[in-house]
């Protein structure tokens, strides 16, 4: 094949990938837009979600994601600090790295099974906001560790050396020099993790349950947007409301992902 033909063919295939992406997003938007009103966002569902809105599912999603992040972000970032700033080649960082890499490969349904056994039953938290959030935090931990680690590694050594030369301790260097410089990169990772947590279904449905009521305490069951969407679509309760729920879900995730990628592109742009 000639160069030109190959380039055209590969450009065409790339185009196909993009078309699929645009189609999926476009299809959900076109079908979801008509049902999307303010009352849809702010009302509680009626008749299992056949009519009414999705307010409790929005609250559930925000609660679960927020709490998961509140746990996973500090743990993940500190793990990354440990891996980059505090270790040489000993067995401990190897074990830690093995743990995060393995965790990253585990499918969400396994997290769901584990969350059900450990949080719901063993710790007796029941189907609850807390069980769901804890399960999600375990799931998003590797993403935060990996991206934070990359961001921290990208901070030039000269920064650290200057800080140490001025008499700072290692920890002072981390908190006042390394972490501030790595902040945009860490933020990107955190946002990608949020995107993953918001869209998760399998890990959440067996840990947070699927209650349609607004959760009053952290021990109440709740359902998230993807779970609500899944139940509406699969049980054929209301296709119209399913589309609108998916619209809200996709909009949330797209906004977060676009923000994350903008930060990331600005970063890599700066490097060049």
């Amino acid at each position: 094949m000639t160069d030109r033909r190959v380039t055209l063919l590969f450009a065409g295939i790339t185009g196909l990938t993009i078309v699929v992406l645009v189609f999926i997003i476009g299809y959900i938007m076109v079908n979801g837009l008509p049902g999307l009103t303010l009352s849809f966002l702010l009302e509680s569902p009626r008749e299992m979600g056949r009519t009414g809105g999705i307010f409790p599912a929005i609250v559930g999603t925000v609660l679960l994601t927020g709490i998961a992040l509140f746990i996973a972000a500090p743990v993940g970032i500190l793990t990354a600090v440990y891996l980059t700033e505090y270790t040489r080649d000993t067995w401990l960082p190897k074990v830690v790295r093995f743990g995060t890499e393995s965790l990253a490969g585990i499918p969400s349904i396994i997290f769901g099974l584990f969350g059900f056994l450990f949080f719901v039953i063993y710790l007796d938290l029941g189907w609850s906001v807390l069980s769901g959030a804890l399960t999600l935090s375990a799931m998003i931990l590797p993403t935060i560790v990996r991206t934070s680690e990359e961001a921290i590694r990208a901070v030039p050594d000269a920064y650290r050396e200057v800080s140490l030369a001025l008499g700072s301790t290692r920890w002072q260097t981390v908190t006042s020099v390394v972490l501030p410089s790595a902040k945009p990169g860490i933020m990107t990772g955190v946002m990608l993790a949020i995107g993953r947590a918001i869209g998760e279904t399998a890990a959440v449905i067996f840990t947070a349950g699927s209650s349609l009521r607004l959760p009053r305490t952290l021990l109440d069951s709740t359902r998230t947007l993807p779970v609500h969407f899944y139940i509406l679509a699969r049980e054929g309760i209301s296709l119209e409301n399913a589309y609108s729920t998916a619209f809200v879900l996709i909009l949330l995730i797209l906004a977060i992902n676009i923000a994350a990628h903008t930060i990331m592109n600005r970063l890599t742009g700066k490097e060049r």
């Binding site: 990938t17 993009i18 999926i24 990608l192 279904t201 969407f229 996709i250 797209l254 992902n257 676009i258």
Partner: peptide
Amino acid sequence: AIQLLAGIPSVVFGFI
């Protein structure tokens, strides 16, 4: 743009 594909939740893929 392709990375955005990775962000679409799996339930949405299934639904489409």
